[in-house]
Each structure stands twice: as structure tokens, then as C-alpha cells.
Design a protein around this nucleic acid. Sequence first.
DNA 1: CTGAAAGCGCTTACAG
DNA 2: CTGAAAGCGCTTACAG
Lengths: 333, 333
Amino acid sequence: MERRPTIVDVARAAGVSKSTVSLVLQNSPLVRAETRADVRRAMAEIGYVYNRAAATLRSANAGLIGLVINDLRNPFFTEFATSVQMALSARGYATVMANTDEDPALQAQVVGAMIEHGVSALILSSAYGEVAPTFDQIARAGIPALQVLRRAHPDTDRFPFAAPDGPRGGRLATEHLLERGAKRIAFVGGLPGRSVTEARLAGHLEALAEAGLPPLVLEGRPVRAFGREAAARLAADHPEVDGVLCFNDLVALGLLSGCAEIGRRVGPDLKVVGFDDIEECAQVYPTLTSIRSHIAGFGQQMAGTVLAWLEEGVRPAPVTSSAVELIARASTL
Amino acid sequence: MERRPTIVDVARAAGVSKSTVSLVLQNSPLVRAETRADVRRAMAEIGYVYNRAAATLRSANAGLIGLVINDLRNPFFTEFATSVQMALSARGYATVMANTDEDPALQAQVVGAMIEHGVSALILSSAYGEVAPTFDQIARAGIPALQVLRRAHPDTDRFPFAAPDGPRGGRLATEHLLERGAKRIAFVGGLPGRSVTEARLAGHLEALAEAGLPPLVLEGRPVRAFGREAAARLAADHPEVDGVLCFNDLVALGLLSGCAEIGRRVGPDLKVVGFDDIEECAQVYPTLTSIRSHIAGFGQQMAGTVLAWLEEGVRPAPVTSSAVELIARASTL
DNA sequence: CTGAAAGCGCTTACAG
DNA sequence: CTGAAAGCGCTTACAG
């Protein structure tokens, strides 16, 4: 039957040894240009396809990176994951991707599967909770693993962490609301005790304290539905609130919908700032002021970071914060 | 150095031969329960991790499925990809996922990389355009490949195609608009000549013809920004239009924003139907009537279909349409 | 039910 | 620059 051709077949067709073919495959400078061309031609002729499984078995680097995401349906994480994957692809790596739906047990399982598949490194936007099983496996496998966006495991020496600067973003947003004349500001959405919530809230509370204003925090799931609910709750329970910093854009977009529903004008009556600046912020009405996390760029950077670690042994700093900036739009006019 | 343990180490620890270990790994009924337990215990003790690259080299099925998506940032495709990936994961398969950003050349490249990595099968929501390089490679590799959502390659005998029922959805949406009293209906968004546009439009035009109404089609990119623009264009150029079927939910959501912007009331003044029923439809204000494609269920089904093909040789029918239904909400009240 | 042997398709020293 | 040989960690018949 039509067995897939191997380097032996290529060697025969090109009239060289299989070692030479292997060297050509690795772009080794040891092979003469002419020989290289002969070999390449032979490959094309007989339809040779490189078998990475065999190469992996012998060498180690499988050219596979694992990407684990807590919520791939959330557009923020989708944008991140997509930009990581495309950057890795451009560097010749394939990406095994898995959504964990915020479930640490499922996360441990998919990470185990990825290790079996021989991923050379991992990028992990972890679920919260019992993450020991996940990280123990990674430690045993001894592969580079980068924590991104959420600091789920405290040992950042072993598992370096990188994320957009949450405290700075919280501060910028709050200062902006104050500049635009807000007198009573609420922080809406985000679950307590989670690293992202803590970071964003910290900057917010600092700026608020400096302005001599008391905090008002409405905790909640970081989803549209909560934002929508919050619009009604704010109007009913805290009518004096005239400025809102949302935990993320989804909450803010939900809040916008909720305000439209109850006839509250966003901008004049209630100033709203989102967080992350996903694409939709510029498309809704009114357009949404947000803290830009430059998530696509951040994803590309993480791809570069993990490959530098893997290929050149450049271990990233334990903690890295990437720059954020405020994008002012109609929701705070 | 700390070499990763192999089946030889397990065999030694358990006091059996490595063949036996291999059989245990494959859950072969040939091994006695007691022996199996001994082996499993030994594995746990020495921290054995299965090396799939080695297994693949010898056997073939790598337990890896390739998932190629034209636009992973679009929430409709994200939902699809995520549900496929999670269903595959539940069946013990890992997913190599890649976004092609609608670029057929990039698609050919990522498909080539996936084949090198030894994916056992492919699920492909293809880019449009020059897809021959993509499908030629797949044919040469001789692996099962399922076209989903978009019929990019005409040879559905070789590359079976499955998608939610576009004509039926187009018809249901149009009939609903008519029932709700719309007298002049436009179809907004979708690029001409593409399989999805053609399918949805076909059902729409049929239903319109049966009602004796003339068509009005505004072609455009299937994105929010186009929908937003379309709101203004409709108001200016076709003020008589009182019902709109959008190519997809993104266009419809953009249209809703655009209507809010120009102060046109969706529902009373203009009835709007989206297509696919992504999660956001139930969250916006006003809530959006849409054709539910059951995309998560569809994704799970596709995972099952490709595994049945791969594992049991059950080749799918050349063309499969999955059921759609209309979900009526406030945008057509 | 278990063991010994060959082989999957590469890469890696090691000679030449 | 090129070739012959060993070996990566499994699975697969084949005996027993």
C-alpha cells in the first residue's frame, strides 16, 4: 500500500545517505548548497512529509506548545489565545489549545494530556482553585510554563507570571472618572479574592482614597448578565452614583444594555469605564471608554517570551506587568 | 540526570515484561486484573508519563485532531471551536487549533504543519479562495477531513460537509418578519458568492417570492461595523424598510447599535432578526430575535462524527444539514 | 496470560 | 561535506 515516504526514500531518490537528508531537514550548514537543492527536489518529487513524531522521539523539541485557557468563549481570552497561536505558528510551532471552563480538575486533566503529547512548553491562563495537581505535573515534566493574566500559583520563580498592569489600569480609570466630574464612583463586577480583581481594585481604591472619596464595590461574575443587572441595582440602591469602573468590558457592555433598558443615559447621567478594551468597545452605542490592555500585542509578546525560554534558556522575570492606557470614548462624555 | 521513566522502568518496578506494561497502557483484556493493578501502582510510584510520540511512531493514531478555523475571534466560531475541542478532550483526544484569519495561504501552511505533527483527522472551517493547496495536502496524507460551516471545496464525497440549515433559517426568519407585520424586508450583510451567504439568502428569497415581495439586498462584511453603517444607510436610502434579516448576529448587533445612535426604535419602527443566536443575543437591549444554529451542539456532533469516521470507518454523508429554529425576542416585537 | 525480538522514522555522535 | 550504526520509547506479532 501507499506507505508515506521516509527519509530513506528521499535519500535513495536523491542518491545520498539518510543522514544527509536529516541534515537538510534541519537546515544544517554542513550540507553543500547543491546537495541541499537535490535533496529538496527529491522530497518534492516523491511527496515527502516530515514525521515529527519520529524526530521528537529522538530529540525532544516537538515543536508543540500547550495553551490552556480558563474561558475561551470570553472575547478577551479568545483574542489573547488567537494572537498567541498565530505568533507561535509564524515561528514554526503548532499550538495544542484547550478550554478549561474555569474548572481546575478539567485543567489538570488537559495539562496531563498535553504533557503526554510532548508539548515543549506551556502558557497557562489558569482556572482559580485547587491548582496544585496542574502545577505538580508540570514541575515533574520539567517543562517551561508561563502563567499569564492570572496568578494562580504563588511560586512565580518556578512559574513566572505576566499580565497587563491591573493596579495602573484601575488608577487611570478612576482618575479619568474624577476628571470628568464624577462625584460618587462604584466598582462593579469581579469576584473577590481573585488576582485580577484584587489588582484592578487596588489601583481604583488608591486613587479614590487620594481624592478623599469612599469606595463602593458591587462584586459579581465578570459577565454581561451581571452588568445588566447592576444597572438596575445601581439605579435603585445607589442613585447617587454617577461614575462606574467595571471589572471588565463584558460587565460594562452589560451595564450599557441595562442602562438603555431603564432609560438611563450613559455619559451624561452615568459615566462608565470598561477594562481591557476589546474590539466591541468601539462598536457599541455609546462607544465605551476602556483601559486598553493591548491584548493582541501581549499575546504575541508571551509567545516570544516562552520561545526565548525554551530555545535560548532565557527565563522570564518572576513578575512582569505590561503597559495599559486609557482610551476615552463617549461613555464618559 | 532525571530521565523521564519509560515502560522499561515500569516493567522493572512491577516485575513484569515491558510488553505487559504496554498492554496495560492499552487497557488490553489480555492482562489479569491483579497484574494490571500492580503495573498501575508501579507507574504512579515512579511517576511514569506516557510518551505518545513513541506510540504514534509505531502505531499511527496520535490522538491528535486538527481544528482549522477561518476566524477564531468571531464569537460564533469561538463557540464552535471550543465545543469541538472540549468534546474531543472528553474522548481522550487533544486538539491542535489554528486560526487562519480568512487567508487561504496561511491555511495551507497550518494544515501542512498539522499533518507533520501527525494529526489523525481534520475539522476545517475553511477560508474562501484558493483552497486547492490545502485540500491537496490532506488528500495526499490520506486522513479524514470534515468540512464544516462553509463548503469551500466542492468534492464533498472526499471532504464531507456539514452545517446548520441555511436555507431553512433564511426562510424561518423571513416568515417570522412577515407574520410580525413587516411589509418591506431587507437582507443585510454577507459577501456574495460565499456558500453561507448563498444558503441563507436562498431561503430568504424563496419566502419573499412566495409572499409576492421584491428583494432588497445590502451586501457587506459580516461584522458589527457593517451593521452599524447599514442602520444609517437604510434610514437614508430605504426609509420604507421595516424589517431586516441580517446575515449573522454580529451584523444584527451592529445594526442595533446603529439604530440606537440615530434614534430609530428597533421593534416598533424596525424589526430585526439575526442569525446563529450567539449568547449575546439574549443580553443586548433590545434582545435580539435570531435563528438558533445550536452551535455548541453542532460542534459536539462534529467531534463525534470525525471520531466515528476515524475510529470505526463510518464515513459521514457528503452533505449534512443540522436543524435550526427561530428564537423570537424583543427586536421583532 | 507473559516474554523476547523486531521495527516505526527520525537524530546523533563518530568516522572518514 | 557524507556514510554506517545505534538508539529514542513505544507497539506488534509471535512463541510459549
